[in-house]
Design a protein around this nucleic acid. Structure first.
Lengths: 244, 244
DNA sequence: ATGCATTTGTTACGTATTTCACAATTAGCT
DNA sequence: AGCTAATTGTGAAATACGTAACAAATGCAT
């Protein structure tokens, strides 16, 4: 029973249960890919302990992640690989074709949508847009690059709900507004800026430079060691961190 | 003074202070880019409240993030934009040229290292490797693609410490072992697998499919709304979520 | 059929991160 | 100089997330 005035920001399908944490969703995608591999290797069942051994993710974490959604396993036995794989796919809605549009047909955008894993995971590119007149009309893969100002009109046919945004930072917000107006509900943003969107729209940011900067931080400031000193450390410690 | 037997896993420059959380480092990169923009716009000083207004990041969060490193601002005044920008750059070590190598000269890898933002942020690609014999010897940008088995030998000259890993999942671990042996200390991994590395090596994972899957989850299961319903919601609520 | 070894689902605990709240500091104004 | 308004830096409170621990469930062996 919903109390009037309560804020219904609990994300999709507001049941009674607490919504799954975002890190859980991220791991779910990892589990899915892992299970796909297992199923190809004809593995029938797997235990959470075995998942930990093979992926490095804590077994309790794995079980808890799944518990946000339903009960999947049999005590004493484990999880049926194919069943779990398919049920996770349903949760993430990657069991059905998902239409994508790309905005920004530059180097990065073209490469991203050219990634063959996309089709394999049923993400389907249906249209490509750009705001650079030099590019409009040219082909990208099997599609024609269209003027981004037409995105609303064009998406009335496709009804894609996910957009990949790979435009320069300066145009990112402007393009985002067009996407929102075109019915896009989820944006994968590669521009290193915070987008303003209505709270009905989900954004995930991927920033290449940010990732590199975090890595850069962790490099010690001392004079660069040559490769050998690392090897020596390896020998000292045995070798790998964690697990076998 | 270091107590014997203490575990020195506190990341770089083990001072007495607690190490900054990783989320703080990620935001630091965001602040840096934001400050670069401000400095180009000739803004002299900025307050944490104004940062919140413009980036959406909580003002206390901003101040606390900075407090892990030093005191940067003047009470009653705020932060000097140029000074803060440069000090964050020093913290992240993006004030100096950082050498990078790329492993995996496919679509994605080529596009990533072709991104002009890299040079602007002083990340310098010094070598490209692949394990596909068809590609070895060919040029990529101004470099020749080399056999990845030679990475140790070649990196003895360059002494790059950061690697971008954009190879298929199956070869990712094998290549990683070569990189570690070659003195690489930080890896930006685009393959959707968990890499095993010694704990002297830092890994950041970027998975395109994982990001899309998380977005896909958030799409409600109900029949797809057309673009107009979203617009109606926009009108109802005023318009944007948060801030002006 | 009963007991044992295994493994789940979940509650309780611990750690990490974010947010709040306020004393301390600064610049400008009178 | 002293007062005021603004804003920082930070300990304490709140929240989110991860890990451990264990009762309940299952299949297998006897």
């Amino acid at each position: 029973m919903m109390i009037v005035g309560e804020v219904p920001n609990v994300t999709p399908s507001s049941n009674g249960k607490p919504p799954p944490p975002v890190p859980t969703l991220e791991r779910l995608a990892t589990y899915h890919r892992f299970l796909v591999d297992l199923s190809h290797a004809q593995v029938e069942t797997i235990s959470s302990a075995e998942v930990e051994r093979q992926t490095g993710i804590n077994a309790a974490q794995f079980r808890k992640d799944l518990s946000y959604f339903a009960q999947f396993g049999k005590p004493g036995v484990g999880y049926n690989v194919v069943d779990l794989r398919d049920r996770i796919a349903r949760i993430l809605k990657i069991d059905q074709d998902q239409k994508l549009i790309l905005v920004g047909a530059g180097n990065l955008g073209s490469a991203l949508v050219g990634y063959p894993g996309l089709k394999e995971h049923r993400f389907n590119l249906v249209a490509v847009f750009d705001n650079n007149y030099g590019k409009i009309g040219r082909p990208l893969w099997n599609l024609e690059i269209m003027d981004v100002t037409r995105v609303k009109e064009v998406n009335q046919q496709h009804r894609a709900r996910i957009a990949i945004l790979a435009v320069p930072s300066v145009s990112a917000q402007m393009v985002t507004d067009l996407l929102v107006a075109a019915g896009i509900r989820a944006i994968l943003n590669f521009a290193p800026v915070m987008l303003r969107v209505p709270d009905t729209v989900f954004v995930r940011n991927v920033s290449f430079l940010q990732e590199l900067s975090v890595l850069s931080y962790h490099l010690s400031a001392d004079p660069p060691f040559d490769g050998l000193s690392i090897l020596r450390e390896l020998d000292d410690h045995g070798n790998m961190a964690e697990t076998d």
